[in-house]
Nucleic acid binder design. Structure first.
Lengths: 340, 340
DNA sequence: CTGAAAGCGCTAACAA
DNA sequence: TTGTTAGCGCTTTCAG
């Protein structure tokens, strides 16, 4: 592996000059630039990122922190990751996915080691310990998500409040009056306090009350089986329910089966709306699920931008971006509630 | 951020000694060790990974390379990643997911920059250009997957040949004689030449011929819609088919719908077996799909082990590990073919 | 058993 | 416009 010194020797210039042309840090005459470039080519020079990082205190690597606990990697996650990576790449940074303990234990080892310039946090809980760790460490970071009070933090997030309201608007407009919200039960797991669930649930409760319609909240267990049981539980709690919002991708299938087995047809007897998921995921079901599609790609890009802006010192602004999901209706089948 | 020098000063020892206790590189007397440890605690010392890497030429970071093209992040991928990360962590390494161009263009920048000690490749094609890049770069690497000729490469992979044979054994035992294999059509995409498809297809063709049973291969398009069309195409090609192997998770749902719409019931009229997927994914469908479950976690761990062994110079052996998928039958419903 | 010192390959003043 | 040089924070011989 050729070093800068070797390139400099070969081009007949000094080390510094090579550094300048490599980084564009200073003006170098076209002639020397050409010679240096040629030498780099010939020696197949690659800038040593580690040395650069040590000298400049900047690695140009940012990390997307992903909790090791639970198997939470969904299509949405993947979209966050890919879009943030793409954006980072456009801005001459690298984005890596880093699996870390949700409690934030190993975080400081990583981050204060100087390996990454900043981090993006996802799967944020209401009182996320990682935020404190990061703050204490004085590492630039941005959230995809929000803690309970994020006013002093840079974040981009799904606007769950609006998403729930929009969902209810849509369904109420269709004539529905009895709703259910199905979410994953995270109590007792490391992901307890997961903000999206709590926000969705709070808004759902408040909004159904305000609208004077009936609202039931059901907590669902893992996987397809969990969805099935949720359906049973739901029908026990409100046999007349006509509309369910589900916020747990891997339970949707079970939920549909459970409803089916109970003799209810979707969407004739009951409407099912998948929350903060993707259109492709909604299509995986039969019938296809209408979906409040998460603006994942947009959020991923904005998160990367926000962090890199911070690193560049480009802006003093704390980004506070909230984007609602967008309704995507699965097909033309009527979703109006049947009378039961 | 405290440096080693500061720790040394505070403990009244030399820089070197601190390094020795931090890394356990040399024996240091319990007394000094204690003093050093105390000083580290007090100063909240964190080893600077970048400096360490520069001096030792080892970052203790390994990367799992994931192609930026296509949206190939599945449940199986996630399991590879998580299990490999876990294993790496146990062996005192960090594993990051690195999105890179499947053509291997940006690969050398990353890798020869010295940021990672080695890489794991996944989503390997028959003639994967990344392998050549990596070989030329002289970076330790391991494949999850195989190129056409992997005899000189360290790899772990699903044994697709055995998986297909086992699948056919199972289904033939049930009385099936007319088979179809549904796979994604990757021609013309960056992922063309994806090894699992080609291996599965070759084995399927050879094995159905050898067994003197009927075999049809169908290439499916993207998503649910692709699966649906695949079903139609399949029934046109072989209206009497009773058994389909599908190797494309996101088309399974569409396939089932397509079969259903054609008046075929699963598993009564036609058996559907999902290949190299996960049990949880199989449960997402109705009816639940029997699945040849990919040994993802095992392979992920073994890949990490193989790479780290290589880095440690522990072994000269090239790991060549092939693990078949395991049949997991969805439910007790009969899968024997109906006569049509 | 511990200390001293020479790098690792680069960046960024500061000179020239 | 280019060259010099002092670090960045650590690892690792080599002495003692």
């Amino acid at each position: 592996m050729a070093t800068m010194q070797q390139v400099a020797d070969r081009a007949g210039v000094s080390l510094g000059t090579v550094s300048f042309v490599v980084n564009g840090t200073k003006y170098v005459s076209p002639a020397t630039t050409a010679r240096v470039t040629a030498a780099m080519q010939e020696l197949n020079f690659r800038n040593n990122v580690v040395a650069r990082a040590l000298a400049s205190r900047r690695t140009r690597i940012i990390a997307l922190l992903f909790p090791t606990a639970g198997d939470r990697f969904s299509a949405t996650t993947s979209e966050f990751f890919m879009s943030a990576a793409e954006r980072a790449s456009q801005r001459d940074h690298h984005l890596v996915l880093w699996p870390v303990d949700p409690a934030g234990q190993d975080l400081d080892d990583l981050v204060s080691g100087g390996l990454v310039d900043g981090v993006i946090l996802m799967e944020v809980r209401m009182d996320d310990p990682r935020v404190d760790v990061l703050s204490a460490l004085d590492v630039p970071f941005t959230l995809i998500g929000r803690t309970r009070d994020s006013s002093g933090l840079p974040f981009v997030d799904i606007d769950f409040e609006t998403t729930i309201e929009d969902s209810l608007d849509h369904l109420v407009g269709l004539g529905h009056r009895r709703f259910a919200l199905v979410l994953e039960d995270l109590d007792g797991t490391p992901m307890a306090g997961y903000a999206p669930h709590l926000r969705a649930q709070a808004t759902f409760a408040a909004s159904t009350t305000r609208r004077r319609v009936h609202g039931t909240v059901i907590h669902s267990g893992q996987g397809s089986e969990g969805g099935r049981r949720a359906a049973a539980e739901l029908l026990a709690a409100d046999p007349a329910v006509t509309s369910v919002l589900i916020m747990k991708e891997d339970s949707s299938a079970g939920l549909l089966v459970g409803l089916y087995e109970a003799g209810l047809r979707v969407p004739t007897d009951v409407s099912v709306l998948s929350l903060a998921s993707s259109a492709a995921a909604g299509d995986q079901h039969f019938p296809r699920l209408s979906t409040m599609v998460a603006p994942s790609r947009e959020l991923g890009m904005r998160a990367a931008d926000a962090l890199i802006d911070q690193l560049d010192g480009t802006t003093g602004e704390l980004p506070h971006l909230l984007l609602p999901c967008e309704l995507r209706i699965a097909d033309s089948t009527a979703e109006a509630p049947a009378s039961r």
